[in-house]
Design a protein around this nucleic acid. Structure first.
Lengths: 146, 146
DNA sequence: CTCATTGCAAATGGTTTGCATTGGG
DNA sequence: CCCAATGCAAACCATTTGCAATGAG
């Protein structure tokens, strides 16, 4: 059910939006494509000092609009970005290490179909996140307290 | 499926947490109990000038911990509070007027049960919001463009 | 009385903006 | 060339915090 990674193409996504291929954007795209894990805007700002903070925020927003990146959030609401590997999915966020996995499950689609029929008004979107302590973090705890 | 309102008791919730019943807290609780709709912390700060901003933020946090208030968010992530009327539920947020309804649906519980079996790691929480254009807003649009 | 709580005002921190400069097409 | 895009620094703004004064138990 957890979805395997596929190759993203962030530059193509920007091109689709009719955006110019500037040097900072290419740098950002290349950098993000190497990132298997979720990250915050500030992470990028720290790890990619050759691109200005404003450009990072502006480009992340573009990439989310383009559907190449998705924006989740920790339980406290602080935003988390992740390169988008699957068409339609939701997120499993480890509250301990911040790792984000994508998942898809028939029960989820079933649920939304059922709700669509019964909720008054027009459904325009949704947000679904599952918070976990991932197996790695769980193991680490076991070891620490042993 | 949309849940009907019942009477909340915010003061009791604070008492359960072993908190003192101070004047500002009583004022806040009374005020919130009259609010049928969702609100932001800043809304309260504006509409209840007799209570300091810091106390408002501190008390809202307490009430969320106590389970008397729940914290949702708009699609852009800006937080929204709402008096909690049902035991376990999720939210339908109108992106046009900000109205928040509570709902509960067997398909939702089924979905989480199914996921619990298949997700690696221990599930510690979740977030589910459905964004809609509510019937009122839809009507208003129809009238405007007619 | 004592210590939790308050309220102010200042600090914080992530995000956005104004504007002169740069560089892609 | 021209205008979109950049980068810096300042502005923003919701939220948090330090601390002296207050008041609940």
């Amino acid at each position: 059910m957890v979805i395997d990674h596929a190759k993203p193409d962030l530059l193509a996504a920007l091109e689709d939006l009719g955006q110019r291929m500037t040097r900072p954007r290419v740098r950002l795209a290349r950098y993000l494509e190497t990132k298997p894990e979720a990250f915050s805007a500030e992470d990028v700002n720290t790890e990619l000092p050759s691109v200005g903070r404003a450009t990072i925020y502006r480009t992340l927003k573009l990439l989310v609009e383009a559907g190449a990146l998705c924006k989740t959030a920790m339980p406290d609401g602080s935003p988390l970005y992740k390169v988008d590997y699957a068409v339609h999915h939701h997120h499993i966020v480890c509250t301990s290490c911040g790792k984000v996995d994508e998942f898809r499950h028939p029960a989820v689609e079933r649920m939304f179909r059922a709700m669509r029929k019964e909720i008054p008004g027009e459904i325009v979107g949704h947000r679904l996140e599952v918070f976990v302590i991932c197996v790695n973090c769980k193991d680490a705890r076991g070891r620490a307290s042993a």
